[in-house]
Design a protein around this nucleic acid. Structure first.
Lengths: 186, 186
DNA sequence: CACCTGATGTCAGTTCCTGACATCAACGTA
DNA sequence: TACGTTGATGTCAGGAACTGACATCAGGTG
């Protein structure tokens, strides 16, 4: 018989999302999260480096980015690879719209959490740029393609969560890419 | 005779930048900053909402952005306006390269500070997008132009501080814009 | 069976940050 | 001049985030 209930980390994430939704982020103490998960505050900080991280800890985005970039055809231009990659990310999110919205609501209600989300997006951009360089794309082009690609992703994601009935996220990404091409061509 | 030494806020900023440079951000307590400035910890938090903000508190960027956008000719496209605006920002920074580098070094050494910097850049993007909408640019185009414009700014700024002898920031911005046009056209 | 490992608990302490209240020079006004 | 107001600062108490040091003890390993 196991000494402890299994999946402590998952229980902490669950408890945190629930409590943040009920009382808000600031009004929820780490002690309260740990208690609901049947653990102690000290154990919370062994699983997450800080209180915010419990909302961001399990994002497998990085590996997905590397795979998408590697899967793009040899002939694709850097920007085409970028467009295809963020379209793939969108595809992955499309399925879990409900959970994404719930998490989004918590984050939207608190500036500290928005701060952390920006960091995660910046890491995604850095990972994308690195994957592009891996393909032989020069530094400047890789950095610009990655940053602008993530910019399109951010804007499309905003439309997706805000609009009452938007087309799917992948479709929003595609129109964002098109619109960006129009804008920069002027 | 004044009751207190003047410019408490400025003294706090000065003391903080010095101490962060000497010992690092984490090893510097707010109490130590306040003491060097001849004030108390409580007074520090009356001037800055948190410890990080002392490095970001006096950025007059927002108003500069609005002015630049307003100054652009009626005929300019959204992306042209954006390009001109970030070029103006670059112009303003070009003069204070030394201080920008010092501040940059402190920020580069600490993830918490990088987090805050991303927030400031996001606010700049939001302000730029709002100024563009003010001109009648549609929502999506305004958001995309602003986000991609700031992306160019970030990338150029990185080159500027990293490269030992780069051309000026404005020149880097211009080549970034050109490169972006090339990339998206492919 | 003895030993080690690793996830958790316990406890004390530091630092960030906030609320409530006190102080007192400068200033305006009668 | 006297007197009340204002506003920047100080003082104090306390909550919550986070960390380091050490204890515990089921389960695997030799």
């Amino acid at each position: 018989m196991a000494r402890w209930e299994p999946n402590a980390r998952g229980r902490l994430e669950e408890a945190a999302l629930d409590l943040f939704g009920e009382r808000g982020f600031e009004q929820t103490t780490v002690a309260a999260i740990a208690e609901r998960a049947g653990l102690t505050e000290r154990t919370f900080f062994r699983h997450f480096s800080d209180k915010r991280e419990v909302l961001f800890g399990s994002e497998p985005m990085s590996s997905a980015i590397a795979e998408s970039v590697a899967a793009a055809p040899e002939s694709a231009s850097p920007f085409e690879v970028t467009a295809a990659t963020i379209a793939d990310l969108a595809e992955a999110l499309e399925g879990r719209r409900e959970r994404a919205l719930r998490r989004r609501a918590v984050i939207a209600a608190n500036p500290e959490l928005q701060e952390r989300e920006l960091v995660k997006l910046a890491h995604m951009a850095a990972g994308l740029a690195a994957a592009l360089r891996e393909r032989g794309v020069p530094d400047l082009a890789a950095a610009l393609a990655a940053e602008t690609g993530l910019a399109v992703f951010r804007v499309a994601f905003e439309q997706w969560v805000n609009g009452p009935d938007t087309p799917g996220l992948p479709a929003l990404i595609r129109s964002g890419i098109d619109e960006l091409r129009n804008i920069t061509a002027e």
